[in-house]
Design a binder for these strands. Structure first.
Lengths: 221, 221
DNA sequence: ACATAATTCAAACAAGTGTTTGACAAGTCA
DNA sequence: TGACTTGTCAAACACTTGTTTGAATTATGT
């Protein structure tokens, strides 16, 4: 195996096919899923030999995990939850930013969107990765949203209504991700294609939720 | 093939294995998905021969489609969309019934819940079965909801705001199904366990949505 | 009872899968 | 240079898949 350090040239060459495999695999996995993706197709797109995957990654499943690791950290880095809205901004503005950034992450094209599909798989068969992912990435965002909603509704953060309404906000965003196959078939061209229509959708969700939270019968006693 | 009408007994016997296949297939599809489900495993659980699926359904894919129809039909039969609310009832009552029955279907235990799991898998990797299922099952329910929402908002059924708000309603319901692993880890014991807590959740979603639709800035001109 | 149809069954089939092999070229370092 | 490692390649391997086959079995209608 790799006992000697390769030279810069050899390293570059090896990393090159490795990188091509990662890119091709990401595309194929995203298109047809892990099970229907064939190593032959991945290698064909990568311009590599059929044995390349087993040589560079061991097996198909390790390649899958490597692709995940590759696209994992990019989503939040590209679209931070509050998108530069100052901390002393009114909560309505923060909510709008929160919704918008979530939608941008969902509708983003390229390797970033890959993470979403994997999360969907985790919903069906959660792995150990789920627990750490919840604590490291999701809970902080949830707390952020609870804070915003509690300000808007003028209720304590641990109030049940704050949690329920926060879920109502998030659910409207992830719906377009989780139910994309249904939405596209039910109403073609309904899903946002460009930045403007994403903003339009963010507007609807924000206004819908604000109207609900401010006029909910039980919002204030 | 079947040219003669079989007697009641033979028909019962034939339908029996057919039914066993549907049940076993529903369980297996829900557990591992269409692609990873093998006809051998399904037939083994059904106590049938390996050729039974091809004999009774033609091929694996038709069986899958039949399972989707079968399970969704059972779910709708158990929890009809409007749950006996009269046609001349106020739209608010209908919305509440629509939400409640959808939640009941989502949180139902037993064979009925297969449909939800299989549908969730369809979201990740849609098969051809999805198209016919949309037209036969989902579109009628969508029309029903659009009708209700258009009455509530006093807008024509084909108005974009009606569609958006309808999605907002449905999304809050399916959220608890699609994101169950996240919700349970984020807030233990948040998910409804009994009929009373399901009603509680139905109350929140209905009130939240009604407040939103009635106070949406653009709802009425 | 008999011919016919419907159903079940074990075995085999054809196609596709991920993986392994062994040879070969190229680069590395003594 | 020459032993050694790294990377690539075509071919083949071992295995699983859904499906088909043809005979055996059971039920049906006259």
């Amino acid at each position: 195996m790799k006992l000697n350090m390769p030279t810069e040239f050899a390293e570059a060459s090896a990393d090159e096919t490795r990188h091509h495999l990662l890119d091709a695999a990401g595309a194929v996995f995203a298109e047809v899923g892990f099970r229907d993706a064939t190593v032959r197709e991945i290698c064909r797109r990568a311009g590599a030999n059929i044995a390349a995957i087993n040589y560079h990654f061991g097996d198909k499943e390790t390649l899958y995990l490597e692709v995940l690791r590759y696209s994992h950290g990019k989503a939040l880095e590209k679209y931070p939850p509050l998108m530069g809205v100052p901390a002393d901004a009114p909560p309505e503005k923060k909510l709008r930013a929160f919704v918008h950034s979530l939608l941008l992450r969902i509708f983003d094209k390229g390797p970033t969107s890959w993470h979403g599909k994997v999360m969907l798989r985790e919903m069906i068969e959660p792995t150990e990765a789920m627990d750490s992912l919840i604590e490291e990435r999701i809970r902080p965002m949830a707390s952020q949203l609870w804070q915003i909603v509690s300000e808007i509704m003028d209720l304590p953060m641990n109030d049940e209504r704050v949690r329920l309404c926060s879920f109502s906000v998030v659910s409207q965003c992830v719906f377009y991700h989780h139910c994309r196959p249904v939405v596209t078939r039910l109403i073609p061209n309904e899903l946002p294609q460009d930045a403007a229509s994403i903003e339009h959708l963010a507007d609807h969700i924000t206004k819908f939720s604000l109207a609900a939270m401010k006029h909910l019968p039980t919002a204030k006693r």
